[in-house]
Amino acid sequence: MFKSAFYLYYDGFRSMVVGRTLWKIILIKLFIMFAVLKVFFFPNFLATNFDTDAERVDHVLSNLTQPLADKK
């Protein structure tokens, strides 16, 4: 069963015509997304700026409550 499943994919990919161009585009796109955009332009703000969940909670709560405190 595993062998036939393997050959389903293997032969399928080998016989593709348009599919090869598509796969190139997909791979380039995924590379740009995960190796460039995610790493250099889209760091997770809370994950990179705070070490613990307690600090993250404190930051978010400050954002939720600070504006009013500023006005007092």
């Binding site: 997770n44 994950a47 978010v60």
Partner: peptide, 11 residues
């Protein structure tokens, strides 16, 4: 990605 970066309080 944008949720985590630009909308972190919401996320």
């Amino acid at each position: 990605f944008e949720f985590g970066t630009n909308w972190s309080n919401y996320s």
